[in-house]
Computed example of a mutant assay.
Amino acid sequence: MATIKEKLLRFLYDRPLKSGSRVGANYEIWHVLGMGSYGITYTAEDKMTGKLCAIKQLRPTKAKTVSGIRSFQREAELMRAVSGSGFPELYDVIEQDGSYFLVMEYVDGRTFEDLIFEDGRIFSEVDTMDVLDELCTLVSVLHTQGIYHRDLRIPNILDVGGRLKIIDFGLACYQDDDPEDEDPRYPEKQVMRAVSPSSDFYHMGHFALFLLYSGFEPSQKKERTWEEELSVSQEFKKVLRKMLQIDSPYTEVHQVINDLRELKIMVKKR
């Protein structure tokens, strides 16, 4: 959790680049796409080809730290290692006047955050299982390479013409990495940032809850658990409880995929 001093430094020094700024020899910044704890992402144009791209800048305050630069280098390495239509392609890595940039494929899609909170999209139980199934298939590509994303939230999963794409590898790491971002003061953060498959399963469990809550309308003021509020089959609740580590957790992604596919067949027959 950022201190007041850290927040003040971010405000003073982490201001986005202006529209029209140049990155490297070829890229011109258009506008800010988003800002995260480690980076600022822009849309930009490759002036050599006229092609639209996305550029992620390491926050200037992070660029002054060894851990920040190490995180940037790790993200670049991981993006080079991952290929396929479910992940953005890395085009270039640029260091310029003490600033660090990743130039990558611009993905023209809608995040699930956009779909739920802006578009008002409602996901049924079967819809949620279908999305989770496809997401798990992409995650299996990462896990096969010993990579854990560790940030599979609704802003980082895109729907691109009906297909999923995972973005933002800022917190991703290899299975033998020591990213130094766990905090013993916050047990949930330890689970979320664990260097193991369980971190991705935990995030995907919460991702699924966001989808399921998209159609929820509270009928009473009394606060209840998600299991009490959501009209979800007991079988799917069991899957979610294992993903959320409430019950004995999954250890491999193929276990999640197998359970989801068996459950989808069962539910669709009803």
Rank of each mutant, 00 (worst) to 15 (best):
H254Q: 14
G146Y: 04
D259T: 01
I246P: 09
W226A: 15
G205L: 08
M204A: 00
K47D: 11
H31T: 04
S140V: 08
V195M: 02
K222C: 05
S248D: 15
D92A: 10
D133T: 03
D14T: 08
E45C: 10
G161V: 08
K264R: 14
R224H: 15
Y91S: 02
D108L: 02
Y38H: 06
I4T: 15
A81G: 04
S19W: 08
R193E: 09
A25C: 06
V139N: 05
G50H: 05
F11N: 08
A63R: 03
D97A: 12
F216W: 10
L132P: 02
R22M: 13
T41L: 07
E113L: 11
V267A: 06
V191A: 01
E113N: 13
H206Y: 07
S231W: 13
I154T: 09
M204D: 06
P184S: 10
V256K: 02
E227T: 11
L209Y: 09
A54Y: 09
G36Q: 05
L164Y: 11
K18P: 04
R15V: 10
G205Y: 10
P184A: 08
D119F: 04
V66E: 11
R121P: 07
V32F: 05
S199I: 01
M266N: 11
E227L: 10
V23P: 01
I246C: 14
A194C: 08
P249R: 14
Y42H: 09
D176M: 13
R241T: 08
V195D: 07
Q73V: 01
E105G: 05
Q190P: 01
N26Q: 04
